[in-house]
Design a protein around this nucleic acid. Structure first.
Lengths: 226, 226
DNA sequence: GTCTATAAATCGATAGAC
DNA sequence: GTCTATCGATTTATAGAC
């Protein structure tokens, strides 16, 4: 390819770089993501890539935001298919697990170990919050409907109430103690289950992951009173 | 140091290599673990390290087993400090979180994203199982004591009963459906919470992690009827 | 069992021509 | 905005002397 031929469409090439980076992410992981390898894939000079992403970290950030948004969209859509609160919850939960299984490396990038030497910048926060927003909205709606929780809940200490105030206040009207506590357990359980499954810690312990996940989220829905 | 001086104690040098590897693990992560860097730290030739560990992967396996055993021992000790079942549970849970906070990179190695290109061999299984064994023994004892669960539980489908049979049957006497279901939720919640906290997903959402973790595990203990 | 030397690669980032 | 060329490093693993 003669020099200068490529310039046709900047955003097209930006997407091609990201696509190649995604492939690498799957093959060698985020820590080994290589600008030069991307350049080889796309048959361009490594220095040219730097015109699109000023550094390797900027590329990682773009991948991270893309993954968070893709997951957020999937979970939002999963919740939207539900006719009632319970279906919204189970729809969101299955969408979370389904996306993670379909995109294991993107899941590892977002919810797995931090990449050594890389700190996610604040531009990622908006995308990272989308899943929690879906779950909290469902719990908020359950509270507004006045459904009784299906499991006992603790009285919060003043310290605990302060500690999780940002969660309670994330939605309007704010969550009461009991719903906040259940929401936090649900949050941790869902990601805990998906991580344990995806990272191989349920091998030989659970024989049918989908069946088991379904049971777990039905039970969480019961606990939430959905 | 003149050649050949070092041979004094093989197991001592093996330990020194592992210690240096641990430092690297913390600084650059498991994916970038470098045999040569270890050799530089210990002021020995890189080729000499291969007399102790035949490959980089063997070194990773040793680190992984060490981490699982260290965590397993910590959780076993945390459980042992408890006078009753509830204290055994909260002791184990706090020990899990405490160890993870004290050894974030070892936690990432064991429960974070898989290391690209590395598959843990079966020799790691025995060490990896210790934490689950502690938790399941507590739930088994609760069942044996006949304590009522503090939250409603689902009837298992036949498929679900089969899916989690290895868990139910891990202890003697085997767990019934309700205790198995609660044990699985507890397992996922504990690791989910620790991972979300340690990997930074609770930033700006939870302001006091220890207070919140305490609330969560007290609630899990309630649900278990402890 | 430690050493030197080596093979055959890899990398991020930049300078400067066009 | 793409290129070539370069800097100054890095790596796993092996061969063979001692």
């Amino acid at each position: 390819m003669p020099p200068g031929t490529r310039a046709a469409n900047r955003s097209e090439l930006t997407q091609a770089i990201l696509a190649s980076a995604s492939v690498q992410l799957a093959e060698i992981g985020p820590a080994a993501l290589s600008v030069r390898q991307i350049a080889r894939d796309l048959e361009m000079a490594s220095s040219a890539v730097y015109r699109y992403f000023p550094s390797r970290d900027a590329l990682l950030t773009a991948l991270l935001i893309q993954a968070f948004d893709d997951l957020g969209r999937a979970v939002e859509e999963g919740a939207a298919t539900g006719a009632d609160l319970r279906d919204r919850f189970t729809g969101a939960a299955h969408a979370l697990r389904g996306w993670a299984l379909a995109h294991p490396h993107e899941y590892a990038l977002t919810y797995g170990s931090p990449v050594p030497g890389y700190a996610a910048p604040t531009e990622t926060v908006a995308s990272a919050t989308r899943v929690a927003a879906v779950l909290l909205a469902i719990v908020r709606d359950a509270q507004v409907e006045g459904r009784p929780l299906g499991a006992g809940t603790r009285q919060f200490s003043a310290a605990e109430r302060t500690a999780v105030a940002p969660i309670s206040d994330f939605v309007e009207p704010a969550l009461d103690d009991a719903h906040t506590a259940r929401a936090m357990v649900v949050w941790a359980t869902l990601f805990g289950h998906v991580s344990l499954e995806l990272f191989g810690h349920m091998n030989n312990a659970v024989l049918d992951y989908k069946e088991h996940f379904t049971t777990v989220i039905e039970q969480l829905a019961d606990d939430l009173g959905l």
